[in-house]
Amino acid sequence: MALDRFFRRRRPQQQPGADVPELWTQCPQCKESIYNRDLLSNAYVCPKCGHHLRLGAAQRVDVLLDEGSFTPLSGKVRPVDALNFHDTEAYTDRLRRAQAKTGRPDAILTGSGTLLNLPVTLAVMDFAFSGGSMGSVVGEEISRAAEFAAEHGTPLLIVTASGGARMQESALSLMQMAKTTVALETLAEAGLPYVSILSDPTTGGVTASFATIADVIVAEPGALIGFAGPRVIQQTIRQHLPEGFQRAEFLLDHGMVDAVVDRREQRPYLANLLGLLTKYEASA
């Protein structure tokens, strides 16, 4: 009876060919089915359990910036297979698949916009593209975003979501850790704030470079954040890892991040913080 009503109510809203998963999302934590419209209006946080779902780069921009204010910066930098890397498949095939899946050249989206009327430069990593891994393109786009912010006198926000440096570009990926640091130093010399927002997951070479040299480090609730992955650590120490190890709240306890901020509170939190650091008076 209840099931019958469920279907009858939903069916008229369906577009021809649309199927159930496009209307509902199951929370990976509490397994509750959430109506996508509710998820959208709740910044992709589960209304039942508060779990912060992983976001694509475009969704992240929508959640953070004022509606319609976003202007993409570059997006023209494309990856190349400098090493002719082959493992179980060619790197070029992996890239093509990730590009088709996400509709972007690589695991990064950068642009400018406003956050409660405050002009900002934003870089967002896309975990859906090859696990948000950092290769030459991610390094270059992050660097350009930092330099753009320095040139235009805006604060920089970087939202991280990454398994670390990209294996398929080997030492070239590794060097992006230093390269992004160079560009962020340009921003620092201009006296402009850089805030990183660490989302689930942020590990490896991203944690060991631009993510953690921000002026202020914000983490999302429950996000896994660390240098070595939990599996590698487990193999090294051969002990059970404690509950909550490498989670945002654990890092706050250990003095590694400035705040754990609920995604629904991030806009006012960041606007206030950046306003204070830049002595900006909101014109609203």
Binding site: T207, A208, S209, I213, G226, F227, I233, I237
Partner: peptide
């Protein structure tokens, strides 16, 4: 590579590496 230990993580392995890179660049 840097030591992948539990205590290394607690004390901010990623943070320490990032800071060393930044200092060396400056």
């Amino acid at each position: 590579g840097a030591y992948p230990g539990l205590e290394a993580e607690e004390r901010g392995q990623g943070w320490a590496i990032a800071e060393s890179i930044r200092r060396m660049l400056s």
